[in-house]
């Protein structure tokens, strides 16, 4: 299927964390958040990060987005060190963080406008809205949207820029469970259609196994890589697939929930 957004198909980005550590300076001491993370993500793959609450998963995404700098080590995009934010790598937050003063259309157009591309490429905004099935809501304001719709607008706002790397920070964490199922399917379809590299933080083991090629399990803070699970099942995957259930059990054990499940 032809890509609706860009003339050229999206290039996917290779992302490498090479011995990355990061500490935050508190008032009186250093708080180590990440400890020697080594992770190579191939272009076009879908990687999920799992870990205890507050272990530093989101910080990994912020590093990849260029919003933070590592204290030690390097974060590389296609082999080059990441210098700062760039619309080729876009972060989608748990909270949709739509600009409330902008209409849905103008929210989606934000990135193109910021880079001066909007006058020439208005059609891409419409295409992105159509892609998330919100074509009819272009003139609505964010407060008029449901949680699921708002998160879809946030996705469209990211995808309109043809990101080569999409960073997702618990993107469906605030949605009700039915909406979450729909959104998971939609995200998967978008990923397969557009072809970006995806790195997603989630709390939901099942979500990680349903969507990702690789699931990385992080330890408590300071986060180290605790385990990695490769999922080579074809999509669509079934929740009750015995292999996935076995992998789910393995991951929960790694997270310290072995006995209860």
């Amino acid at each position: 299927m032809a890509l609706p957004l860009a003339a050229a198909p999206t290039r996917a980005m290779a992302l490498d964390f090479s011995d990355v550590s990061l500490s935050f300076a508190l008032k009186d001491r250093l708080l180590p958040v990440l400890d020697g993370i080594d992770l190579s993500i191939a272009p076009g793959s879908f990687v999920a990060l799992l870990g205890p609450s507050g272990c530093g998963k989101s910080t990994l995404l912020r590093l990849a987005a260029g919003l933070e700098r590592p204290t030690r080590g390097e974060v590389l995009e296609d082999g080059q060190p990441i210098q700062g934010p760039d619309p080729r790598r876009i972060l989608v937050f748990q909270d949709p963080t739509l600009f409330p003063w902008r209409s849905v259309w103008k929210n989606v157009a934000f990135g193109l406008e910021a880079r001066g591309l909007l006058p020439a490429e208005k059609g891409r905004v419409d295409a992105a809205l159509a892609l998330v099935q919100l074509g009819g809501f272009a003139d609505a304001h964010p407060h008029q949207l449901s949680g699921g719709m708002a998160q879809r607008v946030a996705l469209a706002r990211a995808l309109v820029n043809d990101p080569e790397l999409l960073l997702l920070d618990e993107p469906f964490g605030r949605l009700d469970s039915l909406t979450r199922l729909t959104m998971q399917t939609e995200l998967l379809a978008l990923w397969r259609k557009v072809g970006f590299t995806a790195l997603m933080v989630t709390h939901d083991v099942e979500e990680a196994l349903l969507l990702a090629d690789r699931v990385i399990v992080l330890s408590d803070r300071p986060a180290r890589i605790e385990a990695e699970v490769a999922v080579d099942k074809r999509h669509p995957r079934r929740r009750d697939d015995p292999e996935l259930i076995a992998q789910r059990r393995f991951i929960l054990e790694k997270l310290g929930f072995g006995a209860e499940v």
Binding site: L67, P87, A114
Partner: peptide
């Protein structure tokens, strides 16, 4: 969060 979103979307300081 608004600034973070805007910066990842390519906004300059002026923008």
């Amino acid at each position: 969060a608004f600034y973070d979103v805007a910066r990842t979307l390519g906004a300059t300081e002026r923008f």
